[in-house]
Amino acid sequence: MAATDDMLRKVVARRWRVGAVLTAVMMAAYFGFILLVAFAKPFVGTLLADGQVSVGIVIGASVIVLAPVLTAIYVRWANRRYDPAIAALREKR
């Protein structure tokens, strides 16, 4: 019982760690984007591809796309690693 409790704590700690790291990535991307807009306006306004699009639009759209991508990464991790680990612990109890 004590051994499974110990293992549970490890599995739980890993889930919070993965969640915290992914949250940090999302925060870095979003607040990085805001700070870039605030402090590097000329760079964000730089035009690309013959003046058809700006750096800002590309970065902004990327942050939007990043949100579901990170979520998908988490779901994939949780389905493949975390769920089996929990299922294994449940068996042992």
Binding site: V18, A20, M26, Y30, I64, A67, L70, Y74, V75
Partner: peptide, 16 residues
């Protein structure tokens, strides 16, 4: 676009 990005970024936090 800056504004709309802000409305989305909370959702991954809910997931994680």
């Amino acid at each position: 676009l800056i504004y709309s990005v802000g409305w989305l970024v909370g959702w991954p936090v809910i997931t994680f």
